[in-house]
Every structure is written in C-alpha cells, then in structure tokens.
Design a protein around this nucleic acid. Sequence first.
DNA 1: CTGAAAGCGCTTACAG
DNA 2: CTGAAAGCGCTTACAG
Lengths: 326, 326
Amino acid sequence: MSSVKDVAKLAEVSVATVSRVLNQDPTVKTKNRLKVLKAIDELHFSPNILAKNLRKKSSSTIVIVMSSISNPFFADIVKGAQEAIRDSNGYNMIIGTTEWQADTYRNMLRTNQVDGILVISSWANEQTIQDLNAHYPVVMCNEYYENMNLSYVAIDNRKASYDAACELLQRGCKHIVYVAGAKDSSSVKDRLGGFKQALADAGVTFQPHFFVQPKKGREEIGTLLNDMVDRGIPIDGLLTHSDLYAAHILKGMEDRTIHLDRKTGLISFAGTFVTQITSPRISSIVQPAYELGFTSVQLLLRKIKNKEIHKSKQVILNHQLVIRET
Amino acid sequence: MSSVKDVAKLAEVSVATVSRVLNQDPTVKTKNRLKVLKAIDELHFSPNILAKNLRKKSSSTIVIVMSSISNPFFADIVKGAQEAIRDSNGYNMIIGTTEWQADTYRNMLRTNQVDGILVISSWANEQTIQDLNAHYPVVMCNEYYENMNLSYVAIDNRKASYDAACELLQRGCKHIVYVAGAKDSSSVKDRLGGFKQALADAGVTFQPHFFVQPKKGREEIGTLLNDMVDRGIPIDGLLTHSDLYAAHILKGMEDRTIHLDRKTGLISFAGTFVTQITSPRISSIVQPAYELGFTSVQLLLRKIKNKEIHKSKQVILNHQLVIRET
DNA sequence: CTGAAAGCGCTTACAG
DNA sequence: CTGAAAGCGCTTACAG
C-alpha cells in the first residue's frame, strides 16, 4: 500500500529521486540509488501502473483482439504474439474479447490504457479499422483491407488456395467442392480467387453449385453436402476454409457412400492439431500461426516505439502444403 | 482528446457537475444535465478510465488467468465467463496470460487495475493462491485448494471418475489404464481417488503400473502405452484426464493390435468438440464448461460488490457421463 | 443543488 | 546531481 512518497520519506530523498531510480535514470548518485532501493525493498513497494500511465500517457501495453478464442489456429497465433512480447522487454499484452465494441477499444487507445492494437482475423469492418488506423497504431494479422495504408501480416491466400487446388486436380479430381469461410473477409475472397484460377488454368469450368458457404455455423455444412450427395451430384474433392469444417465433413460423410481419402481429396486450412486427430488425418495448407503472431507484434511494437502511425508495412509469410491421409 | 474540463467550459458548469452527470448523480438539475450531455456529445467526450480508476480506487474489471489458451475446454469456460460479465452491467474482463508471474497479478490487484481475479485451473501453487486470497477477491474455477477459505466452482471429480470407472467395469473391463493429468492438482488427485474407489468397490486390485502420468507432454502418452502393449501387458480400458489425451491415444493405438471401441472402453474428461471429430467418437465425462465459467464470475462479482473477501462459497456443478463410440 | 479545492500516485521540465 | 512544484484527468467530501 506504500507509494513513492513513503519510499522517499524512508530513503530520505525526494519523490523525484525515487521516480528516477524507478525509471533507471543514470544521473542518480549511487549512494541515493542504494538508499531508495533499500527502502523499496523494505516497504515491498511497487509502482502504481495506473498513475504511471496516466502521467506518461502511455502504457507499454498492447491489446490483441480475437474473433474467437476457441479456434485452435488463433490460439497458436497468440502463442507467437506472447513470445514477441516477452522479447520486447517491458511491454505487456492483454487479450480483449470480441464482446467489446469498437468504441471500447478506441477508448482504451485514446486514454492510453493500451498503446496499440493487434487485430487477429476479421473482427471489425473496414470502416472501423480505417478509423482506428488513422489515429492509433494498428496491425492486422491474417486478414487485411486494401487501400488504407494498413500494416498487416498474412500468408498469400490466393497462392495457397491455388496450390491446394492444383494438388487435387493433379490427383484427377474433377468435382471439387469449395467450402468457404462464413464472412466475406480478404482471406475468403483470396482463397476463392486462387481456387478459381487453378480450375481455369487446368481447363476445368467452375460450377457455382460447387461453392458452399455455411453462414450459420459448422452444422450447416453437413446438411449442405449431404443434400448434394442425395441429389446425385458427384463429389470427388473438397477444399475447406478451416480445419474444423474439414473435420466435421469427415464425420458427416462417414455414413454416406462418399469416402474421403487420398484419391478423393480433402484439403483444409490451416493445419492445426485438429488435422492430426481425425481419421483419416486431414491434408492441409499449414499456416505459420506462431510466426504470424510473432511478426505481427514485432510490427506493432516498432510502430509504437518509432511513432510511425502513418507508415505501413506488409509481411507475407510462407505457407506449406502438407499431405496427410486425405 | 477532450477532458471533463473542456466539457465543463462548454456547458458552463463546474467539472464537479460534469463528473456528477457522468456518474448518474440524481441531484443534478435537469437543465444542467442536459447542457452537460449536449457538450459531451459535441466534443465526442468519453472519460479517461485510467484517471477514473486511479481516483476511485476500483476498476470494475476482473482478470481471468488461464493456464493454456489453446485448450478447448478452457475456451468454453471463458465463453460462460463472458456471458456473466455481460449480464453484470458495467464490469469488464481481461484475459491474462500464464506468462505473467503471480507478482504481476498481485500488483494489478493492489493498484486497482482489476478488482478481482478468476483463476481457471491450476495456474499457481497453493502458497500464491492463499496469499492473494487473503487480501483480494479470488475465485478458482475447476480446481481448488483445501483449508483456506477459498471460493471455487468445480464438478465432483471424485464422483465423476468413479462413475466413469464403474461404466468400464460394468462392460467387463479388467485392465484399465488410468492416464492422469500432468500436474498434481486437486482434480488429478480426486479423479484418481474416485477411480481407485470404483476398483475397490468392484473387488478389483489397483495395479500401480496401470497408472500413467505423462509429465512431459501429450507425445509421451503414446510411447508409454505402446511400451505397455509391447511388453505384453493387457489393456482393455482407459480413463484419461483430458479429451486431447484420449484423441492422441486413439491415433497412437491405430496401428497397434489394441482396438478401442465400446467394449474395450475409452472414457475421457471433459467432452469438448474434440470427442466428436475423432473416429470412433470418444465417450466422456462431460463437464459443464459454460456454467463453470458463468458461475465463477457470478461468485467473484458478488465478492467484489459486497466486499466479502473473507466469506467463501463453494459450488459443485453436475457432470454427465456421455457414451459415444468408445 | 453546485462549485472550489484537495487528492489519487505517479513523472518531468525547471531551477539550482 | 537533486528537489519543489506542476500536472495527467478524474472524483468527492466540504461548504454554501
């Protein structure tokens, strides 16, 4: 419960000197420094961060917003982010929830509760991001918006999707269903673009009814696909936006005639642990989740430290096509 | 960038009045209130939370500590917690990481950055919890410590484990391997206790070499179990501390002679989505993750609001044995 | 019902 | 190298 005042009194110096010791100001004479350190120790003093941030108008804290905490892919990104924070010496990170509105985050930034914001995936619309990005340090991870001088870290989703589609086409798949993500984010668009491109390059016509976008949740996929099977539409390949989609498809298809293996391929994004516990194990475009998080935080911290709000940088990390049992 | 001072000037009242309007003080005359509200609107003012908390010595924020963000069971708990926070009108929640040391949390509590702490699972040792619990509002979720007047929410792990073991015994399993959690937490102990009790009640001797505790990570389980199989030790049932253990066992055993189905049973804790995407689907003790989180936050908020640091309450929620395909 | 003033616990020009 | 003082943006007794 002690404050700098108490420490100052005990150490027989001014509060200014205490503050200087706290902030490693080299001008403090060793003798005084030692006295202060001793007093701090005796009183079990530690500074009030609230007061410090209020005064300094900065918090050495970033907030990371995730659309869904239960997605294992995001969890891996967070691990990378944590590591970068640990390497940052002095910065902290809090995890915000999507429950909070954009206003909450804007306020946190405005009042210096946090110095910057890392947006993982598509939590907010373009307008919101643009608004935040104009005034505060923002980095997006995994998704992006064009034409707004935004810093982001992602993979080349178009290329990744193209690669996956080529793999399926090479296996001889002709009737490939594309299961898109629920929201119309950049990754959803880019991946669909890459998929179509691969078909076109292989001389295969893209059939609109092979495009499936479950807007209401994972359960819907099963229904949608089973409908297709029941209507006699042939399916000999699938490319899905997420591992969990793929896992649910695998389960949903189990008691149908369609059998998903290495011939009738199933490839998913993003290669989390989920792809390793299903039977068969799911082939996937593995995204460097850890690096995505790590690099994003590096970018954000650089922005904050160098006060480069209006300087943006884009980093594209490499993906990898890993063939497992589908 | 405006402050109460700016608002006061524009509304032609004192900052005290502005503050009163901000805090819904009913004594402010309607005319003044309207003037203030208008000024707030015009200036796009919103209060600086840092300054407010510093002055009020409370933050209306709780922090939730999780041992692992990537565990789907914990993610479900967090969802419940979020819902309770939303119902709380006015409280916020931040998610802390295990990276932070106990000191960080103690400091957050001491300097009113947060009003209370919710500890999910076993993040800290008994001494740390006791220390925090003596001075600040603490609630534990999913785990507990005895003899320290601690509030917690959990299931009856002993009973749950007993139930699961009985199911296996009833199926005729004689050689049941028990795969314990890595840390020696209350749930790990209680579940082992329940398991042993069930064996005893059924007249089956507990064999120490049927107790497996992978301390180094999930990968170890496969090795440990395969060793047993290779040494000719018969296994006709398994009870595991987590869904992920079970999922990995299922994969690890695939190419062994042992086949895990509804006869040679496999039952896991806690029934997350993981148990539904494996083949076969894993039977499990389903824990009410959402309710665990929800109830924990309720308990914590009550403690904070009523300033009942030294009054503790324990809530035991019901578990459920769900038989799927193992 | 309202305002002037003190204070939450820090940091930082400024003067010496 | 150090201290007195101002100030970050709020809230809250206190007096009127």
